[in-house]
Design a binder for these strands. Structure first.
Ligand SMILES: NC(=O)c1ccc[n+]([C@@H]2O[C@H](COP(=O)([O-])OP(=O)(O)OC[C@H]3O[C@@H](n4cnc5c(N)ncnc54)[C@H](O)[C@@H]3O)[C@@H](O)[C@H]2O)c1
Ligand SMILES: NC(=O)c1ccc[n+]([C@@H]2O[C@H](COP(=O)([O-])OP(=O)(O)OC[C@H]3O[C@@H](n4cnc5c(N)ncnc54)[C@H](O)[C@@H]3O)[C@@H](O)[C@H]2O)c1
Lengths: 248, 248
DNA sequence: AGGCGCTTGTGAAGCCGTGCACAAATCGCG
DNA sequence: CGCGATTTGTGCACGGCTTCACAAGCGCCT
């Protein structure tokens, strides 16, 4: 079955995969796991695309970059495709993640089960506040940030999450990079400067809301002029589009 | 000066603004507020671009869509530009936001100060768990989700944040839409189906990590072949690129 | 065994976004 | 008052992404 492939860790079988595709693969992966739980063993591109909320042609093109994955006339083998995507995303082993800043948000993240079920393991918690150091959260002890190099080395941590106030984020990022971390997920609302070879992704709640605000603003500006449905009661507004996403 | 514009709420002065630009305006806004606090009253496109972490040409093109904003030879008036961007993003009044799902993550969000400082006001908290209803968080009372239509109406809420488990998210979204909410920020790892005219943005921590994982995987695959720096000690790795982002 | 229906994989076209490079505009100074 | 330094605003070309549409391939049924 899956063993027939020429080798799991063959190495450079990356046809350098468009960035947009990479960003969607995790979405497919989640939908596939869901389908697998529901007992499906094959999916059509149409079905998977619906479950992931994308265009089916886009999905097929994305998957075509992984090599020959589907079977014409049938669809995609769910478990095989899961393996392929996890392979490409480097999720074959559970990656160790460090979380820096165990405050309001950090506590929530530390207790988040979604880490474990999606291929990651929180390997360490750090904070600069001495009164927090030593605290036990979800089976982990909060360590002082000065221990960073040591722990990063011991636990082979390459990914870190920053959940400190914005004014501390750049400093934390510098220390992370210095300790050997090469990927950072930043929750602090600020721009991080890192050397080449280090990846940074950011999550900014306020930015997301402001983008929504823009569209709200635009909607109300538009509905002000035409004979608009100011408040259609509450009929027919709900799930019109699409139907159920997962399964059928 | 600024009063000379033909009218602040003129309405359809939207040259429909590229989506990519909309997504960056909040970033500029944050950088501008930072600059204003530091006493700057004008910025060059170069300076602002550096502070926001983007290309200066891109920034100029983005801002050019807002109309005549800068002064050649001088730069941009910081406070004026802040006003313009807030205008376009619809941040002239503090928008009311509902938060549904006051669990682990919801608590953190409810206590987040960044809402207030970036143009939003948490107007209501909802949960389905009766044992949570009535709880006071940050000056707000958690209400039962059945009160949604009433409260949404009273508080003129058009934006909602979903922080419930994934299996409840679609149901919550339906009820939100039914109550009149037209923008949703979804933290639950699932696809939401909503009717036309309703905007959904999602934040999925695991997806972000998986994208980082891919790049990690690729990095280690690449450094495996050439005469690579497996572990360069810890020298010279840190802040090489760029320098300080904000001010100079 | 052969045909038929279904689904993948992909060529090609169009759109959007990015970044260079430069002309136009503005200010300050002599 | 005019000139040069400076910085904006933008025309243009290029690359990437999306989408349509269809031929090639596969399994199933007769
Ligand atoms: N709370 C939220 O819901 C939320 C939402 C979106 C974004 N954020 C952002 O996430 C970040 C954290 O938010 P929060 O509400 O948890 O803040 P917080 O103040 O509750 O927690 C910050 C933690 O970081 C620690 N810290 C400070 N400096 C540090 C350093 N140099 N090294 C290590 N640890 C350090 C503090 O001791 C504290 O425990 C902020 O940047 C915030 O803007 C928070
Ligand atoms: N905790 C995190 O750090 C984190 C990070 C990223 C994403 N998420 C996602 O955010 C969501 C919430 O995570 P959490 O850790 O806070 O979970 P949680 O179980 O602690 O909280 C969920 C809350 O939602 C409420 N709820 C359930 N069904 C509801 C319904 N139909 N209507 C209203 N409220 C309802 C529950 O009563 C509970 O209070 C999940 O989807 C999770 O995957 C969480």
């Amino acid at each position: 079955m899956s063993q027939q492939r020429t080798g799991p860790t063959d190495g450079p079988d990356f046809p350098d995969l468009p960035e947009a595709t990479v960003a969607r693969l995790p979405e497919y992966l989640r939908a596939l796991h869901h389908l697998a739980e529901d007992g499906h063993d094959t999916v059509s591109s149409e079905g998977l695309a619906a479950a992931a909320g994308v265009n089916s042609a886009k999905l097929r093109k994305d998957l075509s970059h992984l090599g020959r994955t589907g079977t014409r006339g049938v669809g995609y083998d769910v478990t095989l495709l899961i393996d392929q995507i996890e392979q490409v995303l480097g999720l074959t082993h559970r990656r160790a993640v460090a979380l820096v800043g165990v405050g309001n948000l950090g506590h929530a993240l530390a207790g988040y089960a979604g880490f474990g079920t999606r291929g990651f393991r929180i390997a360490a918690l750090f904070d600069a506040d001495h009164s927090r150091v030593g605290e036990h959260i979800n089976g982990l002890v909060v360590r002082h940030i000065d221990d960073l190099p040591e722990v990063v080395d011991q636990e082979s941590i390459s990914i870190a999450v920053i959940a400190t106030p914005a004014h501390a984020a750049q400093h934390v990022a510098d220390r992370l990079v210095e300790a050997g971390v090469t990927s950072v997920l930043n929750f602090a609302p600020c721009v991080l400067n890192v050397p080449d070879g280090v990846d940074v992704r950011k999550v900014d709640l306020a930015i997301e809301l402001q983008i929504l605000s823009f569209h709200e603003h635009r909607k109300s500006a538009l509905t002000a002029l035409p004979a608009a449905v100011q408040k259609p009661g509450r009929v027919g507004m709900a799930n019109r589009l699409g139907g159920e996403a997962v399964a059928t």
